[in-house]
């Protein structure tokens, strides 16, 4: 790790002004410290944002819940009300890493984490995300990579919470300069879809403050994943679903897939397809087919397509269960 200076920000406002263009925000540090140890980033200043007021609360509001960016994943996963109202969110938090990791990791950090691609993380590899000319996963070892890609980079979004929050139609509130802006989950990641160098849409001086999750009467949510190991392993594919099953029919259901694209993969067409249709495995398979329609298998990641389809069916079955 290169030497750096360290400061604890007392407000969101000062955090974004302190960080400048050579600093990085430090919350749980689970992602950032690894990047620094591997020499992938060499910030001159770390701005600890854990003291920023109002970022540690989980608050039930009228129609919308607010989850602060510095809420740890352990707290989110164990929060009794969250487990009841947004089980998919709690499940997604619980599926992150290990207990110690969840004790440190934060909601904001999970959403803003950088690529886990093993070429990106390899300190000596010069890939497109690090300013090189090519994506080394293309034509390389791409079994953990995207089946839906728009840029040269094949690194997928692996943030569990992004997938769950996308299905829950949540918003992300971000400090941008002196103002706060509210983004959809899609907006939070859209830059990663269009810019191979981007991990998400946020600038280095933009700070996630909280997420806002709408409550929909009668809706359920679920998050499922498949990994190689039973615990403490990245999802090969994950799927979140939220919505209602009324009178045996899907209502207002939203789907999102993780680890298949640079963004949490959502298609309005798939959600619309489900609307009012009987809550059956056949309907679910139809939605899965739409979601994966444009998926393209690389040399080693074709398996993700059937796995994703299976998970969509399982998530939708769990919604109705």
């Amino acid at each position: 790790m290169k030497a750096f200076s360290y400061v604890t920000a007392q407000t969101a406002d000062s955090a974004v002004s302190l960080v400048g263009d050579r600093g990085r925000f430090l919350a749980g540090g689970m992602d950032l410290l690894g990047e620094m140890k591997d020499g992938l980033v060499e910030p001159a200043l770390l701005v600890n944002v854990k003291a920023v007021p109002g970022t540690r609360e989980i608050a039930a509001g009228r129609g919308t819940w607010t989850v602060g960016a510095n809420v740890t994943l352990t707290r989110l996963a164990e929060h009794a009300e969250v487990r009841k109202v947004f089980p998919g969110l709690a499940q997604a938090a619980e599926a992150v890493g290990s207990p110690q990791m969840r004790n440190g990791a934060t909601v904001g950090g999970n959403l803003a984490q950088h690529s886990r691609c093993w070429y990106y993380r390899q300190r000596d590899a010069r890939c497109v995300k690090k300013g090189g000319a090519r994506c080394l996963a293309r034509g390389g070892e791409n079994k953990y990579h995207s089946v839906l890609a728009h840029t040269m980079c094949l690194s997928p979004c692996v943030a569990n919470l992004a997938v769950a929050l996308a299905a829950l139609d949540a918003s992300v509130v971000v400090q941008r300069g002196a103002k706060t802006v509210t983004l959809t989950v899609a907006q939070l990641y859209e830059k990663a879809w269009t810019d191979a160098k981007a991990h998400h849409s946020l600038g280095s001086d933009e700070l996630i403050l909280r997420v806002e999750v709408p409550v929909v009467a009668g809706a359920r949510s679920v998050y499922v994943k498949v990994a190689e190991k039973s615990e403490f392993d990245w999802a090969l594919v994950s799927c979140a679903a939220a919505g209602r099953v009324e009178g045996g029919q899907f209502r207002g259901v939203r789907l999102a897939l993780g680890s298949v694209a640079a963004v949490p993969w959502q298609m309005q067409e798939a959600n619309a397809f489900l609307e009012g249709k009987p809550a059956t495995d056949e309907t679910a398979a139809g939605a899965a087919a739409i979601l994966l329609r444009d998926a393209e298998a690389r040399e080693h990641n074709g398996y993700k397509i059937p796995v994703a389809k299976a998970l969509v069916r399982r998530a939708l079955a769990a919604l109705g269960a």
């Binding site: 400061v7 604890t8 200043l45």
Partner: peptide, 13 residues
């Protein structure tokens, strides 16, 4: 606030 927010390091603190 600024005193609290004074950057420390990169030397030993």
């Amino acid at each position: 606030q600024a005193n609290a927010e004074r950057a420390q390091g990169p030397g030993a603190v």
